[in-house]
């Protein structure tokens, strides 16, 4: 009993003297808001990046390389958007970490909440991938004044030149080569190693997709086929962005072979 009074007296003495004070409620409010905001931001970013990933897979050349079988597999790996996948996973991990460490929802098992989060992100991203949001982000990535430019570093792999595959619009057809407009510029495709020849299909203005080996300045084709660019709007937009007005021109300007300096963008 005496001990009890002792503790009560000691604690109340500290409180009355002002040495121990109530922490402001605003500090706790700020902490809650901070944690809540960090959690919400990580979920939103996970959804956004996953949306971009699905949008890219849906509208670019990446998955189409698999139609070439094992030959197209390297091109598929080369053009796969690894950074988008990694960032999406990272954002989900951050959200899970916040959930676990702050006991935000401790009444439910963490595993259940994690699965729910992942499914929610995938579903929302799938829906958003079919809206214009991702396309706006893609366009914004190339606009220095747009907030979308934040996403450009993470989408770098989507726009880079592929080593194992190429897709573009034919602007010149030669004896053993064709020249195409790609999102990265003009590319000369050497057809010497072509396993099947169907140059008749490679008319000027047609869109083609090829797998093979790329070297600096040229691409040695193993397999090539004509494609419907409506299935790859991401690529078409990239070509339009790069070539602008030139995209609309006919092949007249490109009659001179590249070996004779006839490729102005190279």
């Amino acid at each position: 009993m005496e001990n009890n009074l002792n503790i009560e007296n000691k604690v109340m003495e500290e409180i009355k003297s002002g040495r121990v004070k109530l922490r402001s409620k605003y500090i706790f409010l700020a902490e809650k808001l901070g944690v809540g905001s960090a959690f919400a931001l990580s979920i939103i970013l996970a959804i956004l990046f996953f949306t971009l990933l699905l949008f890219y897979l849906r509208s670019s050349d990446n998955l189409f390389y698999l139609s070439f079988g094992s030959r197209g597999f390297m091109a598929f790996l080369d053009s796969f958007p690894y950074s988008l996948v990694l960032i999406s996973i990272f954002c989900l991990l951050v959200a899970g970490f916040i959930l676990k460490k702050t006991n935000l929802i401790y009444k439910r098992p963490f595993g259940q909440m994690a699965i729910f989060l992942i499914i929610a992100v995938i579903l929302l991203s799938t829906v958003l991938a079919f809206t214009r949001l991702a396309e706006r982000i893609e366009q914004g990535a190339f606009n220095p004044n747009s907030p979308g430019r934040f996403f450009r570093p993470f989408m770098r792999g989507c726009f880079e030149e592929r080593r194992g595959g190429v897709v573009g619009r034919t602007v010149e057809v030669g004896g053993d080569y064709i020249i195409i407009q790609t999102p990265n510029g003009l590319r000369q495709l050497q057809l010497n190693a072509l396993e099947q020849t169907s140059l008749n299909e490679m008319a000027t203005g047609s869109w083609v997709m090829a797998v093979g080996e790329g070297e600096e300045g040229s691409f040695s084709v193993q397999l090539i086929k004509r494609i419907d660019v409506n299935e790859m709007p991401f690529v078409e937009r990239g070509v339009r962005r790069h070539f602008g007005q030139q995209f609309l021109n006919t092949s007249t300007e490109f009659r001179t072979p590249c070996s004779m300096g006839g490729c102005p963008n190279r």
Binding site: I7, V11, R23, I27, F28
Partner: peptide
């Protein structure tokens, strides 16, 4: 240890008071 227990108990009540707004 009783003295130690008393100290810890005191710390508990002080900590609880400080964070009462949470």
């Amino acid at each position: 240890n009783s003295a130690e227990l008393e100290d810890v108990l005191q710390d508990v009540f002080i900590k609880a008071f400080r964070n009462l707004n949470s």
